[in-house]
Computed example of a mutant assay.
Amino acid sequence: MSDVKAIEELGNKYKELRAEIAKIIVGQDDTVDQVLYAILAGGHALLIGVPGLAKTLLVHTIAEAIGLDFKRIQFTPDLMPSDILGSEILDEHRKFKFIKGPIFSNIILADEINRTPPKTQAALLEAMQERSVTIAGHNHKLAKPFFVLATQNPIEQEGTYPLPEAQLDRFMFSIHLDYPSFNEEVQVVKNTTSDKKETITSLLNASEIESYQQLIRRIPVADNVVEYAVKLVSKTRPDSLNATELVKNYIDWGAGPRASQNLIIAAKVNAAVNGKFSPDIEDVKAVAFPILNHRIVKNYKAEAEGISDREIINSLL
């Protein structure tokens, strides 16, 4: 099949996926799009929202719709790296046998990743980066495709271990979930308090997702679009020649080169699912906020004056 035909097929499949997910998930359109974009781009996503916004249900529904294995890990202060990765045990023949941990799945929901100590966070983040784990000197490859969708609760920060900026950078998207609108909440209550049960049909499988990921990589990008993405990222750095006054006054650290790479990959996905054969500057702008918002570090002055990430990023766009 030609790439042109494959992009058209991806656009149609994406519409079907969205309709299937909407059977269970009411609203949250941007969130669903961004999670699906991360999956098609082969990246990971961090979901930030207060309890009760159906983060777990959202991830579970998406995993069902795209036909992938799904495991949920509840992060707690006493969780050890071996609880995630697995460990070696002595079997009845006195031979060491590796028992796989929950990380050996296609989609991992790392629930409340900031509740667990840095040692355990690091074990997960290493697996995200390397797509493999090393136990007792033996390297074990993870399933393909492999995605981590981590959640963070922005309230109740007591007893938490916030992810350092270098580790946040491993996540392609940082997705902020908002409360539903009045009409959406009415619909949620109706759906969840009746005896009606919706079932989700799997529309894809692992090999199809991998082929779509390779297709996204093959999509050509014009030089001016790449230059726009790189210039946008460089504008977030206070010591850059492109930095605006707002950035110089309110930002300590800007985004690194990984942000530029992610902007282009995500722009390709945005173009492909909307039936375009090459991304333009509008596609870069469409994905800029969830890619940049966790990669800029505001200073004390920004916090004191209530300057938001969105305000800074919108000014750059």
Rank of each mutant, 00 (worst) to 15 (best):
residue 288 A to M: 12
residue 241 L to D: 09
residue 296 I to Q: 04
residue 88 E to F: 09
residue 261 Q to L: 14
residue 247 V to A: 05
residue 242 N to S: 12
residue 201 T to M: 01
residue 262 N to E: 06
residue 9 E to M: 08
residue 280 D to K: 09
residue 197 K to S: 10
residue 35 V to D: 03
residue 138 H to L: 12
residue 26 V to W: 00
residue 9 E to Y: 06
residue 189 V to H: 02
residue 72 R to Q: 04
residue 112 E to N: 07
residue 267 A to N: 09
residue 261 Q to S: 08
residue 208 E to I: 06
residue 316 L to H: 07
residue 173 F to E: 09
residue 28 Q to D: 05
residue 166 A to N: 15
residue 140 H to R: 06
residue 164 P to E: 14
residue 218 R to H: 13
residue 96 F to T: 05
residue 226 V to T: 15
residue 211 S to V: 01
residue 13 K to F: 01
residue 214 Q to R: 14
residue 239 D to Q: 13
residue 3 D to E: 14
residue 99 I to Y: 07
residue 247 V to D: 02
residue 13 K to Y: 01
residue 137 G to E: 03
residue 120 T to P: 09
residue 42 G to K: 08
residue 63 A to I: 02
residue 233 V to S: 14
residue 252 D to I: 11
residue 234 S to R: 15
residue 283 D to V: 11
residue 22 A to S: 15
residue 21 I to N: 08
residue 67 G to Q: 01
residue 74 Q to S: 10
residue 181 S to M: 10
residue 65 A to L: 03
residue 125 L to N: 10
residue 144 K to H: 13
residue 191 N to D: 13
residue 298 K to F: 00
residue 233 V to E: 14
residue 223 D to S: 14
residue 97 K to V: 11
residue 264 I to P: 10
residue 315 S to R: 14
residue 169 D to V: 14
residue 85 L to G: 00
residue 64 E to T: 01
residue 127 A to W: 10
residue 214 Q to V: 12
residue 63 A to D: 01
residue 233 V to M: 11
residue 244 T to I: 02
residue 125 L to Y: 09
residue 82 S to F: 05
residue 284 V to F: 10
residue 140 H to V: 07
residue 66 I to A: 09
residue 245 E to C: 03
residue 137 G to Q: 03
residue 194 S to T: 15
residue 164 P to H: 15
residue 20 E to T: 05
residue 249 N to S: 13
residue 253 W to T: 09
residue 159 G to W: 03
residue 277 F to E: 13
residue 29 D to C: 03
residue 273 V to I: 15
residue 157 Q to C: 05
residue 307 I to L: 06
residue 12 N to M: 10
residue 162 P to N: 13
residue 2 S to W: 03
residue 1 M to A: 14
residue 30 D to M: 05
residue 196 K to T: 05
residue 156 E to S: 11
residue 226 V to S: 15
residue 106 N to M: 05
residue 102 P to N: 10
residue 120 T to D: 11
residue 32 V to P: 08
residue 70 F to E: 00
residue 188 V to A: 00
residue 292 L to D: 05
residue 255 A to F: 10
residue 35 V to Q: 04
residue 192 T to C: 06
residue 256 G to V: 13
residue 184 E to F: 02
residue 135 I to T: 03
residue 123 A to K: 13
